[in-house]
Simulated scan of single mutants.
Amino acid sequence: METWFLRLVLILAWMTSGTVFAEGTDDRESVVREASPESVLDPRIERRRIREAEIDTENFEAGIYAGLISIEDFGTQPVIGLRFDYHLSEDVFFEAALGRAKGDETSFETLNAGVQLLTDEEREFTYYQASIGYNLLPGEAFLTRNRAFNNSLFLIGGAGMTDFAGDEYFTISAGVGYRLLINDFTAVRVDMKDHIFTHDILGEDKTTHNLEMTAGVSLYF
């Protein structure tokens, strides 16, 4: 009697466990079927497409510029010039510049009709100098959301000669500038400089500050 009862209990237990396993399997399959594609994490990462700057590796830069120069005692006049740069490194560059303007009449000449301190030829203002520049803040300028341009704020200083009033004067220059690379070989540039020299045109030695502001374009090669 006990043997039959034990067998009956074992058969009932086996049938119950099989039913529970089948129900658990059905539940897992229904969860997988009902899961939406949005609820599943996608391990793939979408990569951004980046276009690297194509900057020439040449170290030479040549350009032209134009602007205004305030020749002390002789008015503010247009100035044009040429520059040639050699980039020693990413931060340091050397520059040779040649600029030309023409001085106006002094206030003394204006107030005294017929008085002329300088001839037209002597009013020609020409400077040539060698300078060294340092890129203080190189970086990028984002002109649009998806386009950036390399740029830099730099300091520049040097020395040279100024030919004015029939004589040559040793000149020291110092200033600041901004350079923006348009593409791999073209740049635009804005400069502000002070050309300092001493002359005795008005009868006594006088140290003059001749402020200049220019804008120009240059090519790398």
Rank of each mutant, 00 (worst) to 15 (best):
E52R: 14
V32K: 05
L12N: 03
V32H: 06
R147M: 12
P37E: 07
F94L: 10
I132M: 02
I45W: 05
F142P: 08
K206H: 15
Y128M: 01
L10A: 09
N183K: 05
L88S: 14
E2A: 12
Y178M: 05
E90D: 15
A96N: 06
I11A: 04
G114K: 12
W4V: 15
D27M: 13
E58D: 14
G216N: 09
E72L: 09
F125H: 06
A97I: 04
Y86S: 13
A174Q: 08
F125T: 02
T19C: 12
A101I: 04
F197P: 00
K193Y: 10
M161S: 15
R123D: 06
W14F: 06
R145A: 15
A96V: 15
D200V: 12
D163W: 12
A62Q: 08
D26P: 10
Y178R: 04
L117N: 06
N210S: 01
L8C: 02
R7M: 12
N112H: 10
Q116R: 05
E72D: 12
W14I: 06
I64N: 04
Q129C: 05
T186I: 12
R49L: 14
A215G: 13
I50G: 08
Y178N: 11
T126K: 03
R123I: 02
T106S: 03
S107K: 14
G114D: 13
L12A: 02
F221P: 13
E204R: 11
D42S: 11
Y134G: 03
H87D: 13
F185P: 03
D167C: 07
V79D: 07
V79C: 07
H209W: 10
D167I: 08
E61N: 03
A53V: 06
T171S: 03
V20R: 12
F5E: 12
E72W: 09
R44E: 08
T126A: 05
E140F: 13
K102Q: 12
A97E: 00
D205T: 10
R7H: 10
D191I: 00
Y127C: 00
D42R: 13
N135H: 01
F5Y: 11
F185Y: 07
D120H: 05
E46Y: 13
E52V: 12
Y178I: 07
M15K: 04
A165T: 01
V79T: 13
D27T: 15
G114C: 14
V9Y: 01
D73M: 07
T186K: 01
V176N: 04
E38Y: 00
I45V: 11
L180A: 06
L111E: 14
A165I: 09
I11V: 10
M161I: 15
G75K: 03
F170K: 08
I55C: 04
T110P: 07
R28K: 14
A141M: 15
D85P: 00
K102N: 11
M213N: 01
L82I: 07
T76C: 04
F125N: 01
G67I: 02
H195K: 08
R100P: 04
E168V: 08
D167Y: 14
H199M: 10
S39I: 11
F21E: 08
I55H: 10
V79A: 05
V92R: 02
T144W: 15
I156N: 00
E109M: 04
E54K: 10
A187E: 07
G67V: 07
Q129D: 00
G81C: 03
A13L: 14
T16Q: 08
V115E: 12
T214I: 01
T214V: 14
R179K: 09
